[in-house]
Design a protein around this nucleic acid. Structure first.
Lengths: 214, 214
DNA sequence: GAACGGACCGACCGGTCGGTCAGCGAGGCA
DNA sequence: TGCCTCGCTGACCGACCGGTCGGTCCGTTC
């Protein structure tokens, strides 16, 4: 039922869907304020007043787009958190899938991340902050289970691990167009390679481990 | 010479400086498109046309503000990278100082980070992407030295460590207003505590280390 | 056929946008 | 004193903004 809606073919969709698609694309690219309703209408191939026929205001249109992005993200993540494999394997699996989702729907990811990295006051009613909070809480729960099982160190803070996990993934996505050109970076277009490296770091750290076979 | 310019007292400054200060505050808070020149003028206590007397265009004003932010950031970081202490100590020192800088000049930090997390095409001429690139390169160089000294594992990718370091710091800053309210997070307003926890994770990883005394 | 509702449109609205222009006053200098 | 420069201003400009209004067209139902 859920197909990718990252602004592929606008022509075959009904009016409201074309408007949503165009809005998603433009809001993701430029943010809310820099996109006019006229521009959205043009991209959707309808008149501006037709946009207002379907959506009462620019705010309502934006929230519809953002809400869909958050819902999609939430639906993708929830199944990832089940599983009984060893912690390290699970860490890599979740991390890889999260990246795959973001790169499969980059516009939606960009919309969500712009909301949580901005400077608006926290409002948990808004979908994106709530999504980040729930993501973090779910990861913390995973860390706690792993701690109880003795899989990871008991003295570390699960919230710090969760945040490091989220930071590693989200920052990589957010800076993808820049790090691609960094002379030392060979993982910008290979999420699998990036995941392996980062998971290794998170699991084992950077210090040499004398006497512990790998 | 360089004092904090995070929009404290506008009244004692000359016109152009007041305009820059107001612009920094508003651009940091809302981004480029959502701030009008009228609003900047009001905040600066001058007329809009006086803003255009000092700055040829909105773009020029924005670049002046952003350029100052990047310069400030660059000047703060460079002295951090010298030092001969053990790698773990240096990691914590750099990390802590970077956070201190960002929280001391949050508007400038927000401006820079918004530029590198947005969707503009990479343009190294722009100051913020160049700053990220140089930060990453400097950290990579540090990692390489530590590897040559045997302080950190030889087989890990220095660029991945550098990115993890940057991700941990920048994402923490960018989400500061949200994570403060997370039930499991006790480090949102204590950068020292956050640094200790994250540095421990980056240094030692999450896996239990049997047989290695800590 | 008539009535209705939904999708859609061009024209229009009041207001805002970035930017320009003519002018004023203050200060410095010859 | 007169001239120049600088900082500053209100009025103004065309373009654009989000949104409204009156109307048309089409499909459906009775």
């Amino acid at each position: 039922m859920h197909t990718h809606t990252d602004s592929t073919a606008c022509d075959d969709l009904a009016g409201a869907a074309r408007i949503l698609s165009a809005a998603q694309h433009l809001f993701a690219e430029k943010g809310f304020a820099a996109v006019s309703m006229h521009e959205i209408a043009q991209h959707a191939g309808v008149s501006k007043s037709n946009v207002f026929h379907h959506f009462r205001s620019k705010d309502e249109l934006y929230l519809a787009v953002l809400g869909a992005a958050c819902t999609s993200h939430r639906e993708q993540l929830v199944p990832l958190l089940s599983g009984d494999e060893p912690f390290g394997v699970r860490l890599q699996r979740i991390m890889h899938a999260d990246l795959e989702f973001m790169f499969a729907e980059p516009e939606r990811a960009q919309l969500v991340l712009r909301e949580i990295t901005g400077t608006k006051p926290d409002d948990a009613v808004q979908p994106a902050p709530a999504l980040l909070r729930d993501n973090a809480a779910a990861l913390v729960a995973q860390m706690r289970i792993a701690q109880q099982n003795g899989e990871i160190r008991a003295e570390i803070d699960p919230a710090a691990v969760a945040l490091l996990f989220l930071a590693a993934n989200k920052f990589y996505f957010l800076t993808r167009n820049l790090i691609r050109h960094f002379p030392d970076v060979d993982f910008a277009d290979d999420h699998g390679r990036y995941v392996e490296k980062i998971a290794d770091l998170i699991l084992h750290g950077v210090l040499p481990q004398e006497g512990v076979p790998k």
